[in-house]
């Protein structure tokens, strides 16, 4: 049972080993304006597509509900 934890510990140890990539301008640019621009655009490109797809899903759901309700109102009641 204890051996099961070894690979997990190895993975965590390996993750802690590498030093930060200093070439990454998002993390280590000394200019605040540039760093802020990277953070802003990263957020934009992450959340914008999710918002679009989510918005379309909500809109389609509302449309389907509306059409369903209209269909039920149009259907004549059963007789006998």
């Amino acid at each position: 049972m204890k051996r099961r934890w070894i690979p997990i510990l190895v993975v965590f140890a390996l993750a802690a080993l590498p030093k930060a990539a200093f070439a990454c301008s998002v993390c280590f640019d000394p200019r605040d304006k540039n760093r802020a621009a990277f953070v802003l655009t990263t957020m934009l490109l992450t959340f914008f597509p999710l918002g679009m797809v989510g918005g379309m899903g909500v809109w389609l759901r509302k449309r389907f509900h509306k059409v369903e309700q209209e269909g039920e109102e149009e259907t004549p009641p059963r007789v006998g």
Binding site: N34, L40, T41, L44, L45
Partner: peptide, 18 residues
């Protein structure tokens, strides 16, 4: 297409800030 524009505008913002 919106993502295409988002990408181009993002690149523009980053280049301008640098």
């Amino acid at each position: 297409e919106a993502m295409l524009f988002a990408g181009m505008i993002s690149a523009f913002i980053v280049v301008r800030s640098a």
